[in-house]
């Protein structure tokens, strides 16, 4: 087997998996803490990608788009939580599904009205537009390496934040046992808003990071939403660590599958999900539940 080719695919798979982690960790936290499913989470990714496209178009600098996606995403998420989602935590699943489905339609319609329905590409920042020699006969795109590094950094910050801060431990308590929050006398509203803002910011950051790697196009969030569901089902219930390992696994399986078994690659992740459901229906990396 071609070793440097394999190395490139492994790096691609990890980088795709880490982007998936940014999306699915927000999904799983929002689900775990508030018990609400957000089908529009993929649309937030789409909005992040379009934000990167617009901002690089204006200023020519992608690095400005990243903090903008993070901060804008946090504000937008807080606003969504406050204005809409807060009223749906105790509603039927069907209502939540349809509410967030409506958001997808409205976000896509807004995108179409403001920016049209064309495909766009986003320039890789000039500073990172070169290849890094990894082995003597193999070089890898510096931007992709930077994305890998940025995602690892975000994941580390997130784990530290969840493990070491008061808000983080409150969020963990809420994700494991939602009724704990009130027992401990914590401010549930603040936690909910923080979690929703974080999830939205991460999804939009993922979109902005991914924009130069693929074209920016209508409905681009749909595929990511569904693969993120696969990640959450494979990784396990409401756990960020599960989302991390699940995302890496799905990213690698999908990328390696497309490279080496292109005929069946589209199905590989679903077969993996079916196997996990048969073997451990609560997910591969789910913590033991009492």
């Amino acid at each position: 087997m071609d070793l440097s080719g394999l190395l490139a695919q492994l790096l691609n798979g990890m980088q795709y998996g880490l982007l998936l982690f940014l999306i699915s960790s927000g999904l799983t936290l929002i689900f775990g803490v508030m018990g609400v499913i957000n089908l529009a989470h993929g649309s937030l990714f789409m909005i992040g990608a379009y934000a990167a496209f617009v901002i690089t178009g204006w200023t020519g600098a992608l690095w400005l788009a990243l903090p903008a996606a993070l901060i804008g995403g946090a504000l937008f998420g807080a606003l969504l939580e406050r204005g809409l989602f807060r009223h749906f935590y105790r509603r039927e699943h069907l209502d939540q599904v349809l509410l967030t489905f409506a958001l997808i339609l409205l976000f896509e319609e807004a995108r179409s009205a403001l920016l049209g329905n064309d495909f766009h590409s986003v320039q890789v920042p000039a500073l990172l537009d070169f290849s890094v020699p990894v082995t003597p006969d193999f070089a890898y795109s510096a931007y992709r390496l930077a994305v890998l590094g940025a995602c690892v950094l975000v994941a580390l910050l997130m784990f530290l934040g969840l493990e070491r801060t008061r808000l983080g431990s409150a969020v963990r308590a809420a994700a494991e046992k939602p009724e704990m929050v009130e027992l401990l006398g914590l401010d549930a509203r603040r936690i909910h808003m923080a979690v929703f803002a974080l999830g939205t910011a991460l999804a939009m950051l993922a979109g902005a990071l991914a924009a130069p790697l693929q074209s920016v196009y209508p409905n681009m969030g749909d595929g990511f939403l569904i693969i993120s569901f696969v990640v959450v089902v494979v990784g396990g219930v409401g756990s960020v660590a599960g989302a991390f390992w699940g995302a890496l696994l799905i990213g690698l399986v999908d990328t390696l599958g497309k490279a080496y078994l292109p005929e069946v690659a589209g199905l590989a992740v679903y077969v993996l999900m079916a196997a996990v459901l048969l073997w451990r229906p609560s997910g591969l990396f789910a913590p033991a539940r009492g």
Partner: peptide
């Protein structure tokens, strides 16, 4: 397969398998 899960996980699983059939 999907009925091995409940609630939202049933929803996500049916969505994912439905999308798989769409791809087919």
């Amino acid at each position: 397969l999907s009925l091995r899960t409940r609630g939202f996980f049933f929803l996500m699983t049916t969505l994912a398998f439905g999308q798989m059939l769409f791809f087919v």
